[in-house]
Design a protein around this nucleic acid. Sequence first.
DNA 1: GCTTGACCTTAACATTAGTTGAGGTTTTAG
DNA 2: CTAAAACCTCAACTAATGTTAAGGTCAAGC
Lengths: 153, 153
Amino acid sequence: MAEKGVLQRYLSVGEVASRCGIAVSAVHFYERKGLISSIRTDGNQRRFHRGVLRKLAIIKVAQKTGIPLSEIGAALDKLPPNTVPTIKDWEKLSSQWRDDLNERIEQLTRLRDQLGKCIGCGCLSISACPLYNPGDALGSDGPGARLLELTEE
Amino acid sequence: MAEKGVLQRYLSVGEVASRCGIAVSAVHFYERKGLISSIRTDGNQRRFHRGVLRKLAIIKVAQKTGIPLSEIGAALDKLPPNTVPTIKDWEKLSSQWRDDLNERIEQLTRLRDQLGKCIGCGCLSISACPLYNPGDALGSDGPGARLLELTEE
DNA sequence: GCTTGACCTTAACATTAGTTGAGGTTTTAG
DNA sequence: CTAAAACCTCAACTAATGTTAAGGTCAAGC
């Protein structure tokens, strides 16, 4: 009881999980992966600093943009350890991720537009469609035959 | 030699793979998953109808939009079997997928915009940021505290 | 007609992002 | 003080999307 004042200093894994809307197992997982960290009670239970909530929020946002955990972890690693990420930190991360996001949005938009152009255009014939043509006529068709490489993968 | 006229009727797995720019193992995989099909020679080698190239092109495009193979397969299953997909077929698939794409683009765009608003806004404080707040202050903060639910997952 | 490259099957492995279960311990509420 | 809820670890499992390897067969060119 004495531990649980108005300003609760540390959070149990269950509290962290429910506050972030993720599973306890996911919190464990992120810790195993080094994305977050905790200290332990005498009884070996995890206790998380409040800052972990912010990190988890950042993780969730970044995941939504399609960034793999490994990259998210690498980015978080560059933040000063043992502190709550500052606004400056957040600024750096979020603007970088926003650039990634923008790129992905552009790729998808190009794809969508090409898709739109191809709908009903009749170009799906074997030799002419930029969507269709995978390399099939790369030699004979010259330019304009490779939407499939559009996103540069 | 007699088999290999100007209008080659069937393609070997290697030809299919190289024309589509994918690995032979991937072609096998797609066949195992039922996305494409083949007939066999007397010697048990796969022979693909040319239509498979179109299907593979569709598969690649759909994958780029983020559609899982299972869904792509389900969509392809609704096409008349044993024929090259027609333009009408393609029209239906592509417009549906374009809608999916649009939705994903919108989600990412919302996320990016929110990200932009949050950069440097100073709102990353525990109780106020719409990006940050995962449910932490859902009770006390009322509306405006849930970008993390933005994309409704 | 033989050698080499392409093909066959089956099984195991890789990666990402977790979840589930077993078996045991700690914390908390009454 | 005790029982239930929450926590612990470790290992195995899931699912998607393939790749790699082993061991063997087929086909095509010289």
